[in-house]
Amino acid sequence: MLKKLPFVALFLAVAASSHASITVTANAVGSLLLSSSGTALASGDIVRIGYFNASLATLETSNSFATLNSDFDPVGEGTDGDTLTENGNATDTLDINDISGNGSFAGQFNGITSSAIPAESLLYMWVFNSSSPSTATQWGIFYNPTNANWVFPADPGGAIVSLSSAATALRGTANGSNFELANIAVVPEPTSIYLLAGGLVIGALALRRRATA
């Protein structure tokens, strides 16, 4: 019987590859993504899918991209061994791709590493009015705690993160069946603060040197 064990081990190794997937969409039939002024988001604006290890209060109030980003575990984005199928986009980052006009998108992450996100975690959709999330001036955070399809699936299952499934806006607001992003009071990044402080110190020293000269 022991001679058979290597074959069993071989089977288990083959079966270990992950096939978890997440399908994501907002579209004209269900819900579109709008800016805070009510215009549909432009093609190229970033949509991130993942898990927040932060309180709902933080998600509802924090204006710091750095803080929220440090609490965010995204799927895709080159970290989870997955492939992203998306209209007209060859990158590993999901964006508005106008699948049914402005403000709409569809995409599918396949083969996500099963350990990418804690099992059965709620999934969040974090949307920006920019192709550069860290400099976006508006964002929206959406989730759906009552819909089983907004949960990171066990291998080889799939999640379907659809904005039209009565999602809840933690940041942003519902506008009919659509969702608007919220304006964000930009909080300078720590590195920016250090640069600013450094500049002020240098300026002060220069003024003092000029005054004493």
Partner: peptide, 30 residues
């Protein structure tokens, strides 16, 4: 656009299809 079906293929790929409720009834989720 909320419920769907995932199929697996011989080349070890998979696709999730979304139910649309209109037309052919289904679209490729990606």
């Amino acid at each position: 656009y909320s419920d769907g079906i995932k199929l697996f293929f011989p080349n070890n790929t998979s696709v999730t299809y979304l139910f649309t409720g209109t037309g052919d009834g289904w679209v490729n989720g990606g």
